[in-house]
Design a protein around this nucleic acid. Structure first.
Lengths: 227, 227
DNA sequence: AACTTTCAAACTGTCGACACTCGACAGTCG
DNA sequence: CGACTGTCGAGTGTCGACAGTTTGAAAGTT
């Protein structure tokens, strides 16, 4: 790595791979690469000013996150989604979060409640003065908390993997939240259900909440696919 | 293995990475490496007679499967399990398979039924004249079919990831099936429930089946941990 | 004897190079 | 005119090497 004379950049002597992975992720989410397009290692290496080794590792990382796919001897390609795959992702997400809220309903503490309330507040705030990306991130953060508080760390890991795909897919579509405030508010019923500690009520509220989201994203995707 | 129109098996220039990954996996499952032990890239490369690059990639692959963990600048280590993590894995597995059988209950075809029955038969056969490893593989194959037939491909992928960990963990413990025939038979109630097409009955049968397995593996693990 | 310092071996992260493979394109033969 | 073959460029798979870091033990100090 060419050390820039401005002492700032040297902090990240740490890990080129993660930096590259982050940059690639950002580029993918920004839509710089069309779905299905081939990513040449040497070209990316030149662009980033590094050798192919770290680029290759970063690409494998994104592959494991489902944002790239690879073919032997042909290299990496930007992941393409079809409507069926998107449905699968949402279906699985529902499966996970249902399980999470059922577990959580039986063990919700005051601290967890406060943290979730605070997150809702944050969502309301960025609904007004945040970017679309921020809104999505805070939305995801709320759902991630549900998983986290369920106590099953393995479940959180799968949720994170799924989120990478959802984010990718959502931003691929373009605008999602035409009324961010309404989206933020739609989480309140889930929170209310949690407070009752009734697992069935929680699951029902979540079903409704995620069902709506899936329907909207699905519609937009199918529209886009039809073109 | 795929076949071409001419009937020949496609010679896939099996790249080194997969071969190494397979060998490493086998070694790990055989218990050649103690949990927590450090795997030096150069040493493995010498053992396999290759350079470090493919070893590194294979190790990253196993890391994504949860069999190794890596620390920056320190390399790869054999994954260690504790009882809590094992519980998480089984809990998540239950979550996935419940969802799968619920979906499957509504769409079970004659072909699927036949395939599942055949798999049960295979399990009974290897219960008599198979190795412990075969018994585990056929057991896993039955549960994998449930996921496959649910129609959610993404769910299958997560199930596969979990299986790598379960297999690893189970073989880490040592003997699991002291009565293989009984284990094979314990799948029958799930199959019977499926035939009724009643989602609740399916879920209940599965809960019972997996609950028993989790309890047994958990007990053995805790015993071993206590040492 | 316990504790710190020094130092060398081992190891990882990264690099540039080379061989082999794949796909495209043009040329050849029926 | 169409199908097959040979060639060429682009790109991946793999390798050996170097630099900086970590580790563990020897050496030195109180």
């Amino acid at each position: 790595m060419t050390t820039t004379t401005s002492g700032f950049a040297t902090i990240q002597q740490r890990d080129l791979v993660n930096q590259i992975a982050d940059m690639l992720t950002e580029a993918l989410l920004k839509g710089d690469f069309a779905p299905g397009v081939h990513l040449a290692e040497a070209q990316l290496a030149r662009d980033f000013g590094v050798s192919r080794a770290p680029v290759r590792e970063a690409a494998r990382l994104l592959e494991s996150r489902g944002m790239l796919v690879s073919q032997p001897r042909r290299g990496f390609f930007v992941r393409t989604f079809n409507a069926a795959e998107l449905d699968d992702v949402y279906d699985l997400r529902l499966c996970l979060e249902r399980h999470a809220v059922r577990l959580l309903a039986g063990k919700l503490t005051a601290e967890m409640e406060a943290a979730l309330d605070a997150q809702l507040e944050t969502m309301r705030r960025v609904a007004n003065d945040g970017t679309a990306l921020q809104q999505i991130e805070e939305d995801v953060a709320f759902h991630r908390m549900l998983c986290q508080f369920s106590g099953n760390q393995r479940l959180v890991r799968v949720f994170d993997e799924l989120c990478h795909e959802m984010r990718f897919c959502i931003l691929l579509i373009g605008q999602l939240y035409d009324d961010p405030a309404q989206v933020a508010e739609s989480h309140q019923p889930v929170m209310d259900a949690l407070r009752t500690r009734d697992a069935n009520a929680c699951e029902a509220a979540l079903d409704y909440h995620i069902g709506i989201a899936q329907q909207r994203v699905g519609e937009m995707f199918r529209e886009r696919e039809g073109q």
